[in-house]
Design a protein around this nucleic acid. Structure first.
Length: 591
DNA sequence: GTGAAGGGCCAC
DNA sequence: AAACGTGGCCCTTCAC
């Protein structure tokens, strides 16, 4: 295929190029940069293509650094990208939209992400890589040369080969979209893809926004924990050394407390029966009888805290913003859930000591909102179980309501124990819990646990039906879907009982967990539309929770917008069960 | 030195 | 411990 491209490096050419492109329905979109991090590198090229003619815009010719955001000659480009009229097709559009927003100062609207499309399809047709070259090879049967991708995009004079590479990537996008979209439609993934595409810009913004972490508070907490870790380590060394036959003249031989192997043999030397694992759950029963075991668990707690939630987190603070800009993977799990890394802001300990360090800067407020029991509400709605739905409609404490129904007592006479049982059942059932696990969790005998589970499912018969149907259907369907149509394909050996069991539990859980992700993503788009042009900024998400930061004077208004967006998104999916959002305006990430 | 695997543990 | 789902990070161990 002939490749026509034009290097655009002056205002008049840019205006002409953008007005030509404005007539297109679909525009291939790509950028070349000198770094992977928009806070560290330069946006060198922006490429736009209708598939036949490609404009390679040399951004450096229009200015550099912070001045670019306001450069008037770039206005036609900003207007084109931020217009909802043309669909901008990019591969991993979060990357391109982040660079454009940070360096050119505008959002990219109406995004079609061929990477996300490929991942969604991939969930249906098996393992396959999703880089642009892989997608082009798989869907178009052509080979795309990516060797220039890592070339020097900071050079004064870009080579002909670099420009051509840049043009090719953008030029191929409309065709890639067309092919992918045929599969999206035949696989009934268009609704899921729409949710994903509309979520790209909110997430790009969130990563650029970052979240403020108070360095001093964090260091104070770290100092407390580190001291305790050192103390626990010394005591533990002493207790473990008691079992060593020949103590050295030069002091006791230290063991590495972080080595499972060394700790296990030290415990065994003391005559403590360690069976298979030294996980906290397994050691806990031994902790009462053996103080050294209790001390080990104490040490582990402090070690985890100081090692995973210590200086390493502070090192992620970006100097130019003073904030943490983590990486969010939009389809982090096959269920559709996000994952987060560098650092993982979704696994910050729930304790106030840690969460209170994530703050609103001076003059700002944090709005913290989470869906109340969203997964159980989804299960109620999907299964259409009447008693289950009624329990939510009544507005009463849900776990108490469950307890009242299982134990056949009045709602106001439910004991804390009964409520606790019901709560653990309610959560367990979402994961496909079995009799043995429930028995161990509650301390009930297996027959008592079985009896309780039977009463639970008798209370919610349609839910029982739905779960059984999922378990049965997956054996022939080999897939499950969320309410948006997102699909997860299962591979399993039908002769392996453990694999079959795991697959069936997954088939029960995936539609619930995945619909929760659908709802969250939809809420993020509604929120994005609502807070555009205000001081409110999205700063973090944790599966069923959204954190927004806003000027103190606008916090109330932002809170209403956040709440409304979350409720509206939930109601789009859940037709028979009320959606509830808990919300707080605070200086800290605390609930 | 680097990377993968295993154990352990944080979140929802 | 296990037949309770989804992630990422830290450390050790071991291979290259």
């Amino acid at each position: 295929m002939e490749l026509y491209f034009q290097l655009v490096s002056d205002a008049a050419s840019l205006e002409k190029a953008c007005s030509e492109l404005a007539r297109e329905e679909f525009i291939g979109f790509d950028v070349e940069t000198t770094d992977l991090d928009p806070y560290k590198g330069e946006l060198r090229l922006v490429q736009l293509s209708n598939g036949r003619e490609t404009k390679v815009i040399d951004i450096r010719a229009f200015g550099t650094g912070a001045e670019l955001q306001a450069t008037p000659t770039l206005r036609p480009l900003r207007e084109l990208l931020s217009s909802p009229k043309q669909t901008k097709i990019a591969h991993n559009a979060k990357f391109d939209t982040k660079w454009v927003r940070h360096h050119l100062g505008c959002d990219t609207e109406n995004v079609y992400d061929t990477y996300l499309a490929s991942v969604l399809i991939g969930s249906a047709d098996g393992e396959r890589r999703h880089g642009l070259a892989d997608v082009v090879q798989f869907f178009l049967g052509r080979t795309l040369d990516k060797t220039e991708q890592v070339s020097d995009w900071g050079a004064n004079e870009l080579s002909a080969s670099q420009i051509e590479y840049a043009a090719k990537d953008a030029a191929i996008m409309p065709e890639v979209r067309e092919r992918l979209h045929e599969r999206i439609v035949t696989d009934a993934l268009d609704k899921a893809l729409k949710i994903e595409n509309e979520c790209v810009m909110p997430i790009a913004q969130m990563e650029l926004n970052g979240i403020y972490l108070d360095r001093e508070r964090w260091q104070e907490q770290l100092a407390v924990v580190s001291k305790k870790q050192v103390e626990a380590a010394e005591e533990l060394q002493g207790m473990l050394a008691a079992g060593v036959a020949q103590a050295s003249l030069f002091g006791r031989p230290e063991i590495n407390l972080d080595s499972v192997e060394q700790v296990t043999s030290a415990l065994e030397n003391l005559g403590i029966p360690v069976e298979g694992t030294t996980r906290a759950g397994a050691l806990l029963p031994l902790a009462e009888k053996y103080p050294v075991v209790a001390k080990l668990l104490e040490y582990r707690q402090y070690a985890k805290a100081s090692q995973s939630f210590g200086q390493n987190i502070l090192d992620f603070i970006e100097p130019s913003t003073g904030r943490i800009h983590a990486d969010f993977r939009q389809i982090g799990a096959p269920t559709g859930r996000f994952s987060c890394s560098n650092p993982n802001l979704q696994q910050i300990p729930h304790e106030t000591e840690y969460r209170r360090c994530f703050m609103a800067p001076a003059g700002r407020k944090l709005i913290v909102a989470d869906y109340s029991q969203i997964e159980l509400r989804i299960l109620a709605d999907i299964s259409k179980d009447k008693a289950f739905i009624d329990a939510f409609r009544s507005g009463a404490d849900f776990h108490s309501a469950t307890a009242a129904q299982i134990f056949r007592v009045a709602a106001d006479t439910v004991t804390p124990d009964q409520r606790s049982f019901a709560k653990r059942l309610n959560f367990g059932v979402v994961y496909g819990i079995g009799v043995q696990r429930f028995a161990r969790m509650t301390g009930l005998s297996e027959s008592q646990a079985e009896d309780t589970l039977r009463r639970y499912f008798a209370t919610y018969p349609r839910m029982d039906d739905w779960l059984r149907t999922q378990a049965k259907a997956v054996l022939t369907e080999r897939s499950a879907r969320t309410l948006s149509g997102r699909i997860a394909r299962m591979r399993f050996n039908e002769n392996d009982r453990a694999e079959v069991g795991a697959t069936q539990r997954y088939a029960k859980n995936m539609p619930i967990q995945g619909t929760s992700a659908d709802i969250l993503k939809r809420a993020l788009r509604l929120l994005h539309n609502e807070i555009r042009g205000t001081s409110a900024k999205l700063v973090n998400i944790v599966h069923d929770e959204i954190l927004v930061e806003a000027d103190a004077s606008e916090a109330e208004e932002a809170a209403r917008k956040l709440e409304n967006s979350m409720l509206a998104a939930g109601r789009e999916f859940l037709k028979d069960v009320p959606v509830k959002v808990d919300l707080a305006i605070s200086d800290e990430w605390a609930k």
